[in-house]
Each structure stands twice: as C-alpha cells, then as structure tokens.
C-alpha cells in the first residue's frame, strides 16, 4: 500500500513537472511572433497603403508560428488532465 502511494505520488509530481517543462516551448512562438509583428509594423510604416495585405499576411503567419507552442500546450494539458488518471490506474493494476 505504501509503495502504491509513493509510486502514484511520483507519477503525479512528474506529470506536473513535465507539463511545466513542456511549456518552455512557449518561448519560441513568443519571439517569432514578436519579430513578425515588428516587421509588419515597419512595413506598414513604410507603405501605409499596403496595410490590409500586410495585416492579413501577418495574422496568417502568426497563427502558423503559434503551432509549435500549441503542440506544447496540448502535451501539457494532456499531462495534467489525462496522464495522472491513466498512469495511476496502470500502476495500481501492475502492483496488484
């Protein structure tokens, strides 16, 4: 019983740690989208008449650059809400 409790505790803690570590990937899209928006602002400043085209292209590019961050977010959400339950069940059935 003690062993099961300790093992489940380790699983929960590692899931939380893994979720936190996965979200480090948020740095990449942050830098990338900031760069894209800065360049779009420069472009609009240089050519104000191209504002519509620049803005729509920028939103499209931002949404695609966001993808890697979203992969990390999906992994983190799965680790927090899905993994502890299924891993706990697996452990209990294994140790029994």
């Amino acid at each position: 019983m003690d062993m099961v409790a300790i093992a489940i505790g380790i699983v929960f803690g590692c899931c939380a740690l893994g979720a936190g570590i996965a979200m480090i990937a948020g740095i990449g899209p942050g830098i990338g989208e900031g760069d894209a928006v800065a360049k779009a602002c420069e472009a609009i400043g240089r050519q104000p008449e191209a504002r519509g085209a620049v803005t729509s292209t920028m939103i499209m590019g931002c949404a695609i650059a966001e993808t890697t961050g979203l992969y990390a977010l999906v992994i983190a959400i799965l680790l927090i809400f899905v993994a502890p339950g299924s891993m706990g069940n697996l452990l209990v059935s294994l140790i029994k």
Binding site: T67, L70, L73
Partner: peptide, 13 residues
C-alpha cells in the same frame, strides 16, 4: 490536425 485541434481545445480548456 494538431494545429486545429490544439487551438480549439486549448481555448475551451
């Protein structure tokens, strides 16, 4: 698949 699913699901969560 993951781009679309991740955006909508993370918004809901």
């Amino acid at each position: 698949a993951f781009r679309h699913y991740g955006n909508v699901m993370s918004g809901a969560v």
